[in-house]
Design a protein around this nucleic acid. Sequence first.
DNA 1: GTCTATAATAAGATAGAC
DNA 2: GTCTATCTTATTATAGAC
Lengths: 205, 205
Amino acid sequence: MEYSSETEKKIVEAATTVFLEKGMDGARMEEIARNAGINKALLHYYFRSKEKLYQEVLRNEVRHFYLRFFNSISPVDEFSEFLKHFIYNYIDQIKENPQVVRFIFWEIGRGGKLVRSVLREILSNQHTRIPHLISDKINKAIAEKKIRPVDPQHLLFSLIGMSIFVFIAKPVIETLFEDIDVNSSSFIEKRKSEIFNLVWFGLKI
Amino acid sequence: MEYSSETEKKIVEAATTVFLEKGMDGARMEEIARNAGINKALLHYYFRSKEKLYQEVLRNEVRHFYLRFFNSISPVDEFSEFLKHFIYNYIDQIKENPQVVRFIFWEIGRGGKLVRSVLREILSNQHTRIPHLISDKINKAIAEKKIRPVDPQHLLFSLIGMSIFVFIAKPVIETLFEDIDVNSSSFIEKRKSEIFNLVWFGLKI
DNA sequence: GTCTATAATAAGATAGAC
DNA sequence: GTCTATCTTATTATAGAC
């Protein structure tokens, strides 16, 4: 994400804001230009088309998302600590930028081909396969009889699903339960500990 | 969802297909008309605008989603049976129509105002508040010391998050783990039992 | 590199005949 | 109710001056 010129950088920043809010189809080149403090012609000078600009933004955001995921993995050996670290940090990462999750689901709704290709690109440039790294950790804990036998992949999906749901379903949740404010730190801290407790009690022997 | 004419019914069917696949902004009235076997003029004759047609579709789909949710609730009293029934049926419901989940998230990404208003409409026409009904069931099990004390709302969010995640993230999951086919019944059955076991072991005293 | 002006076209919406 | 033809506007994209 090193851009040669200041203008190029401003364009990508503006495009990111607009695409994350409106999605590919809802975004307008006019608005992106305005946000970047330039005009449409210059957009096309730097990025030949809307599609190209969109791909640039998507690539960055998927990379970021993957990095956030990576940052949630602790080297700690003790499994309960590892688990707690993962849940707490992953939720913190998502809290910082919940729109990205929705944006990626948005793109998946458009077919998912682009996401797949960006992901494959990232994976091939990376020698450590992060998701498998987590599976290994879980398998190790099972082998050492620290936790009962579970399917590591499914456990991972459960952790991710539980962590992201409240952020993408925010308006629904706040309509069904009027006392909840998803972004409040009291709710988020509670969310972390409830997930951890459920999973930890659900795993330990 | 009773439509007076056959044409009106065909229009809504076609519109549902197209909006679910492309979203509001990506959908084209032309394509909807073609899918319904008519032309654009007739679309506007029945539904004054794209926005109106979209709202009709959204309203139906949110209602359906809510009904699916409702159908996952068993009257059974024994808590582990209730839990199993909820997870197994909810996943079956989503499996039948995974695009709807994505569609609703799509709409939430557009601000969520419409989803909120449709939800409120449904809730006000309904004397039993379903989400609270589940919370009550959980609270009862806690009071009877069948399960350890947990926050009922958070448990509900966890169940939903775990259940829907694999369906909306399908392309990502299948790229990261090449051996998985999310739609295969072996994967789905495994998903159900892994969620149930994790939660049940995580709850029982 | 950056702008103004404009082309080219796509898309929602309507008029008017049948 | 249904169609063809057409209007109107929004939007991506480019030409050409500076």
